[in-house]
Design a protein around this nucleic acid. Structure first.
Length: 420
DNA sequence: TCTGGGGTCCTAGGACCC
DNA sequence: TCTGGGGTCCTAGGACCC
């Protein structure tokens, strides 16, 4: 058996933990640049429905009128709260697969004869007690079924946020209960296509011939189909897989026309992604840079361009990547546009020890330099050392807007919650 | 009349997830 | 005025190899 534990309205719940005055009140969390609504608690969802991903400027009046409290996203806080939850889960199973910031699958092999509902409730209660976060627990023989059980745990009143599929009756009953688009792995396009054949429930989907599924939904759809029948096709992952691509791309707080500012932002992002790459003990073969104007704007002239650099020797060295990135950016930059976003992406990622060197390439890389660089930044703060291209005096010209960010209660001494 | 057989690697595009 | 960010996997088709 597999359990899926998923935090309810995770970002909004994290904010509420440190603001008990907001218990029972509507709360939403906004995307970067305070652009869209990306999370809403149940109270906010119940209100005149607030559509997810709706641009904030369109509904701000409505939010204020309804007494909704809104927060800019505070990923430092959410990431740390997530770690706390995952550590608690490790007390319940030797195998925890962290699937995303707010959910994990855990292995319950060997426990099928115990009272799994009671176990699920114990998990839920311990997390609530230790972190203040509400979770739902779904338990079933496969991942896809555990996802459905989790959904049913939360959506159906009377389940108390725990639901177990431990019999054929319950499996079939849940398949009839679930709509096609509720199934994990079936998105908008496929759901629409299946509905066009006159089928509406997850059960109906399992009645489709496998050949149809295979033809229209590839082997991915076939696995989903089999998992719904109780056949295990998606094993639990013991260790996180190394990333195949590491990228970052964020919209600027305001539109930029000057190359120098875009260069600075680009350099900042390269610094970030190369550190992630080093933490994974890998090097990258390719560096991609892209630059774009605001595609929502009808007034502005549009320009989107991307360029990929093949590195002479795979590297994770910030300085080399920075120099290459700068050259690439210069190639695609065209003056006269109001730019909204620059992005960088490292790919062709290989373990550091397997890097194929180049007979003709210069090897003036300073041994141990990046290690020292990372250690100093870890000890003294994120950008204590940074390439000169990142001139932090200008950061306010392009950095993200986060007007409503809550304190970083759990990671900054000066932000510690004060009880009076 | 009939034109081999067995592969690899790369890229773009589509679908999906949170 | 204002519209998020970070990923994965699969397939088809083209180019190439012997």
């Amino acid at each position: 058996m597999i359990a899926l534990i998923d935090c309810n309205s995770f970002y909004a719940s994290c904010e509420q933990v440190f603001r008990p005055d907001l218990q029972g009140k509507p709360v939403v969390v906004l995307s970067n640049n305070d652009g869209c609504v990306i999370a809403a608690n149940s109270e906010a969802k119940a209100l005149s429905h607030i559509p997810m991903f709706e641009p904030v400027f369109k509904i701000k009046d409505q939010l204020i009128k309804n007494g909704v409290t809104f927060f800019s996203s505070n990923y430092t806080l959410y990431g740390e709260m997530s770690d706390r939850v995952m550590r608690i889960l490790e007390e319940f199973s030797p195998l925890v697969e962290i699937y995303s910031i707010d959910e994990s699958f855990i292995d319950l092999t060997g426990m099928q004869h115990q009272d799994l509902r009671a176990y699920g409730i114990a998990i839920k209660e311990r997390i609530k007690r230790y972190t203040g976060l509400p979770v739902g627990v779904g338990i079933a023989p496969t991942k896809v079924l555990a996802k459905l059980a989790n959904r049913r745990a939360k959506k159906e009143v009377g389940n108390d946020h725990v639901f177990v599929i431990d019999s054929e009756e319950k499996r079939l009953d849940t398949l009839h209960w679930a709509k096609i688009k509720d199934v994990w792995g079936i998105g908008k396009k496929h759901a629409q296509r299946i509905q066009e054949t006159g089928r509406n429930s997850a059960f109906d989907f399992t009645q489709l011939p496998l050949s149809w599924v295979r033809k229209h939904m590839t082997v991915v759809g076939e696995r989903t189909w089999r998992e719904l029948q109780g056949e295990n096709c998606l094993p639990l992952e013991r260790a996180p897989k190394p990333k195949k691509a590491i990228g970052t791309a964020k919209s600027f707080g305001k539109k930029l026309e000057k190359l120098a500012l875009i260069e600075e932002a680009c350099s900042y992002y390269i610094n970030e992604v190369s550190e992630v790459l080093r933490n994974q003990n890998c090097c990258a073969n390719y560096l991609q840079i892209f630059l774009q104007t605001n595609y929502h704007s009808e007034r502005d002239k549009q320009y989107h361009k991307s360029i990929t650099v093949t590195l002479e020797v795979p590297t994770n060295n910030t300085f080399i990547l920075n120099a290459e990135g700068k050259k690439a950016l210069h190639k695609i930059f065209k003056p006269g546009y109001r730019y909204k976003k620059v992005g960088v992406c490292l790919s062709g990622i290989v373990p550091k020890e397997y890097v194929q060197t180049n007979l003709f390439a210069a090897t003036d890389e300073k041994v141990g330099l990046m290690e020292a660089f990372d250690r100093i930044n870890q000890k003294f703060g994120k950008t204590t050392l940074a390439p000169a291209l990142m001139d932090s005096r200008q950061i306010e010209q392009w950095e993200l807007i986060k007007n409503e960010r809550s304190p970083r209660y759990t990671t900054q001494w000066e932000d510690l919650l004060c009880v009076v």
